[in-house]
Nucleic acid binder design. Structure first.
Length: 422
RNA sequence: GGAGGGGUGGCCGAGCGGUCAAAGGCAACAGACUGUAAAUCUGUCGACGUACGUCUACGAAGGUUCGAAUCCUUCUCCCUCCA
């Protein structure tokens, strides 16, 4: 790819954000000449985004830092339809209340990265329910429906794959791509939005929007997709065995979030530093060049940088203390960041709770058998003491004395337990 | 419309009347090694019970049998060939 002249594309390209784009040269030229508005759509299917969406958030943040205007589009309307991309079955339909709750949760993350407001480069947050909900069916069909070729729609992967497998595809879902295309056109008409970005799985939808814009005679629209991110071991970004890496602090503790980044494989460190931090490339290059055990320093920087945006810079101290205590010294008494659950009287039966139940309560295991297996394989410790008895019961007195017990499963999973005050 | 093949645990894939909670591989989890990495080696890997065990599972529903993932019937979905 040629050298980009606009600050934005230059930055994105240098950091590995670009998978493909429509007329990148034209876009480069446009963005060099004038600030533009660009959007990314987000589904409102959960109360929080997870690490897999972080790359889109970073793109919007870079956009703003380069003087352009980010539009965060919440899919309040399209979520009611459900994107068939990559799925074999229709998604469960969400209620309006669910969606409103989800939007509020997701919005809180964006506030940490970009500035919203009324100045030219301030970001705006829109909900496509605001226009999709009030579409008039007849008018919509006549004004926009005529621009969509069903023949062509059937060739898009999202639809084609479903049909090829003879899996049901409802008319509702079939409309998803039309609505997303309409979104782009709507944003172009009402907010002078010229660019839609998204993961490469959204490519088809993005291109549809651009086509619609052309047919409507709008100014040239552009699309830009980011690579679908996997770790070097082929795992989808943001998912781990113990669950998704949620961005919202109430869904995942700062400590666990930091640990996720701290545990990055060597092979991914440099790539992740470019994508998930704002550190200058020269600095990343230095960190990426570290060899052997020194790479751990780079991982710490990655974890710090990634964590401080989502959580707070202030939380880092506590995390460092806890981590160093848990991993090097052993016992941890200064448990500030580790997720801790509070037990009440009801959790105890005659003053005790079986360890295998406690492990489940802490989400360290998924079943009693699972817990038993874990104990049998010598992986469970309470305050550094190896527990070998599957029947071990945690007595209330242990908590009264120790205040907070650290239960560990394996070498990296720690959870705290304490007794409620009353 | 006609002929044939097939749907097995998170995925791939054996099994084709009992010894099948189901080979093998991948993924995952844990242990050892190490750098909270990778690779490697070892163990575990449906649920419930301390355990002999019990329950639920091989597309769905029925049936045959002392006994079925395995046989029969119907339904359903996928694939291949012919028209």
């Amino acid at each position: 790819m040629a050298q980009f002249k606009s600050e934005f594309l230059h930055t994105l390209h240098g950091r590995g954000f670009i998978h493909q784009g429509t007329d990148l040269e034209g876009l480069d030229d446009l963005m060099r000449r004038t600030p533009i508005a660009a959007y990314i759509g987000f589904d409102a299917t959960a109360t929080s985004l997870h690490a897999g969406s972080l790359i889109q958030i970073m793109m919007l943040t870079h956009l703003q830092r380069c003087g352009h205007k980010p539009i965060v589009l919440m899919g309040g309307g399209t979520t009611k339809v459900g994107d068939p991309t990559g799925k074999d079955t229709a998604r469960q339909l969400l209620t309006d209340d669910d969606i409103a709750t989800n939007i509020a949760g997701i919005q809180s993350i964006f506030n940490k990265f970009i500035t919203f407001g009324h100045k030219p480069s301030d970001a705006i947050l829109l909900n496509n329910a605001d226009w999709l909900d009030h579409l008039n069916y007849m008018n919509f069909l006549r004004d926009y429906g005529r621009f969509f070729s069903v023949n062509r729609m059937l060739t898009f992967d999202s639809v084609k794959l479903r049909l090829e497998r003879e899996q049901p595809l409802s008319f509702l879902e079939f409309n998803y791509m039309i609505l997303q295309a309409f979104d782009f056109a709507y944003l172009a008409q009402n907010f002078e939005c010229r660019l839609q970005m998204g993961g490469s799985d959204q490519w088809g939808n993005v291109v549809n929007g651009i086509d619609l814009g052309r047919r409507l005679g709008l100014p040239q629209l552009y699309g830009l997709s980011s690579p679908l991110l996997e770790t070097s071991s082929g795992m989808k970004m943001g998912k781990t065995a113990s669950g998704a890496i949620w961005l919202n602090p109430d869904k995942l503790s700062a400590f666990d979030y930091w640990q996720f980044w701290r545990n990055t494989s060597d092979a991914d460190v440099a790539r992740f530093l470019k994508l998930y931090t704002f550190l200058p490339l020269e600095e990343i290059e230095k960190l990426g060049a570290l060899q052997g055990a020194e790479i751990n320093d780079a991982k710490k920087v990655l974890a710090d940088e990634a964590t401080k945006w989502i959580h707070s810079e202030a939380a880092l101290d506590q995390i460092h203390r806890d981590a160093s205590s848990l991993f090097t010294k052993g016992t941890a008494n200064a448990l500030g960041a580790v997720e801790t659950i509070v037990l009440t009287e009801q959790d105890f039966l005659q003053g005790e709770i079986p360890l295998i139940h406690l492990l489940q309560k802490l989400s360290l295991t998924s079943s009693n058998s699972d817990g038993r297996r874990l104990i049998r394989s010598r992986a469970v410790r309470i305050d550094d003491t190896l527990i070998e008895d599957e029947m071990f019961k945690v007595h209330k007195d242990m908590l009264l004395r120790e205040k907070t017990l650290v239960i560990s499963s394996g070498k990296k999973n720690f959870k705290g337990v304490k007794l409620s005050d009353n």
